[in-house]
Write a protein that binds this DNA or RNA. Structure first.
Lengths: 352, 352
DNA sequence: ATGAAAGCGCTAACAA
DNA sequence: TTGTTAGCGCTTTCAT
């Protein structure tokens, strides 16, 4: 086993610049109490020698680890990967998270954690002990998991919850799901729809509730009935099929349906075709998430885009700024999504 | 700044078990020279206290970092992420790489590195110095970048090249691209095609050449002409359109085309439609990669599936085994892909 | 504003 | 088979 040592250490730099280790350390960490000329001299040596501090050593002496942990739901993530259905949540997360981390000299490490099950605690403790991350990003539904947040609180590790129910205490970010659901509902109402169905997502995801409420309130505000117009799925294609079938086979079927993610919307689209309904002629559809596949479906789906990259990017910023004691924006931060119009929405059919 | 220390260290375990630090260390690292009863006692303390070694400290004392670095091409990766066209290379890489790492207590860290440009060296040196990874996975086209492999050699960091031209020295894995191209070509010949066009990929990717050669040789072996049947793109949709247009507007246009990735195949499909050619009636198509989108195109594309998850998983195994001095399989390891039949291949048109 | 000394948690080398 | 010692590269004291 090759005993790999750092090729250029702080000592080399100190020797080269003719200063103490401490001064070099101060320059690296951009601390006060270093004269500009001194700083320049040290920096020159750093550049000359190509010195980069060892994260391990920095961590060891009680400083930062420059590691940010992103916790995702194990089961769902692996299922998505295996299914290869084009969900790009992870990619977008990396796009936003990694690049922002890189700006500040941090790295993002992905970790899969079970939602249920009792070894959550062991897993998470293990990751914390092994990595000593400077911050943690909790993606749905982990933000609402008291076991996780409790553990992080105990270890005093800052974390940001994405799309979580709870607002107290920690840093949190949402994509304004209720407003987005309102936007979608209003869009359909503006087109003349009155019977707008809704397929909700899994209960354990806070966003499911928010999205549903946005729809519910907008319907109410417009004096429209909602009885028998809401079914709940679990974000899977199969559950979407089931929910869609119930809605579309009911006596007074909706002329439009909003489903809480792309898979369920695509399922609804399929059921509509099976029942001989034309989309968007007989049935308008609006989806949530806007993953790549919705552009390739027939018809391409109008969808609420979730700005995941932007959200995770802001989450990283929040974490780093809070660690540095810098000022934070008012929380929860809302990174609003938008409605992307394609071809799955039209005016409702005249008859009936 | 909360000065975060390890909550349970090797000292606690040693005290609890009433043994020396070294003995605990030996148990952690599964070394010899520990009596079973001793080992059991220590392990009991570890479990009781929920002890997990600090990677930073392990690295510091010259041992492993339990970190594996996966190097991807920065520009292409970011472009793919932004385009949101459903390429799931990264996801598959994580699926295979992360999970295998987890089995052995390692973590996979992604890093984006420029292919061209002179700061490659600085970037890579920085990553190595900061992270001290135990191994590196080089995805195309980095495996053929002498600057990168040279640097890794110098630092004595084991690396595995995926889909690289070079076979000497280092660990390497390929997906048997030439055999796959042969398979695709033969599949078309078996259907009765004689004029089979080929759209090659960017030259800097070794796989481009292999795929082309597989096609070329199979054509030759079957006594079929290849003149004017090959165009080169750069894996982008636009380049695919251009190449397809040249092939399909030529006097003796091919009855089938194999394109070196999904984007270019989809572009070819589009051009065919524009020219009034039916796929697969007038033109058969076989794609490379089999990313999620090809199932949603009309018609769904027959494609060569690249087993990325499996490949990266094997790469991780190779790295860990080589580090442990365990026996390795013969290299380069070939993780063969397969032909996934969908609806873009038919017999050639009768007329002409 | 700079430097010296101590120690973080762990493992390698050596000793017993 | 087990324990002791030294030190990895860095940042924290605390001194100057």
């Amino acid at each position: 086993m090759a005993r790999r040592r750092q090729s250029v250490t702080i000592k080399h730099v100190a020797a080269d610049a003719g200063v103490s280790l401490q001064t070099v350390s101060r320059v690296i960490n951009n601390e006060a109490n270093v004269r500009p000329e001194m700083k320049a001299r040290v920096q020159a040596s750093i550049d000359k020698l190509g010195y980069v501090p060892s994260i391990a050593a920095q961590r060891m002496s009680g400083s930062r680890s420059y590691l940010i942990l992103a916790l995702n739901d194990r089961q769902r993530t692996i299922e998505d990967w295996r299914a290869r259905e084009g969900s790009d949540w992870i990619d977008q997360m990396l796009l936003g998270g990694m690049l922002k981390c890189a700006e500040y000299g941090y790295r993002l490490i992905f970790e899969l954690v079970d939602t249920h099950s009792d070894h959550i605690e062991r897993e998470l403790k293990g990751a914390i002990a092994a990595l000593q991350p400077d911050g943690v990003i909790l993606t749905p539904p982990h933000g609402d998991n008291a076991l996780i947040t409790g553990l992080l609180d105990k270890h005093k590790i800052p974390y940001v919850r994405i799309g979580s129910r709870a607002n107290g205490g920690a840093l949190s970010i949402s994509m304004g799901d209720d407003a987005l659901a309102r936007m979608a509902t209003q869009h359909l109402i503006d087109k003349g729809h009155m019977r707008i169905g809704f397929i909700a997502g899994a209960r354990e995801y806070a966003v499911s509730q928010w999205r549903k409420e946005g729809w519910l309130e907008t319907m109410r505000d417009n004096g429209l009935a909602t009885d028998g117009l809401c079914e709940r799925g679990d974000f899977s294609f199969a559950s979407g099929e089931q929910a869609a079938r119930i809605l579309l086979e009911s006596r007074a079927r909706p002329t439009a349906i909003i489903a809480s993610n792309d898979q369920m919307t695509m399922a609804t689209n399929k059921v509509a075709h099976e029942l001989g309904l034309k989309v968007p002629g007989d049935l308008s559809l609006i989806s949530f998430d806007n993953t790549p596949v919705v552009r390739f479906v027939q018809p391409p789906l109008t969808a609420i885009d979730q700005p995941i990259a932007e959200t995770v990017s802001r989450a990283v910023e929040l974490l780093i700024k809070s660690q540095r004691g810098e000022e934070l924006p008012p929380l929860p931060l809302i990174v609003e999504g938008s409605l992307v119009e394609r071809n799955s929405v039209a005016a409702p059919p005249k008859s009936k």
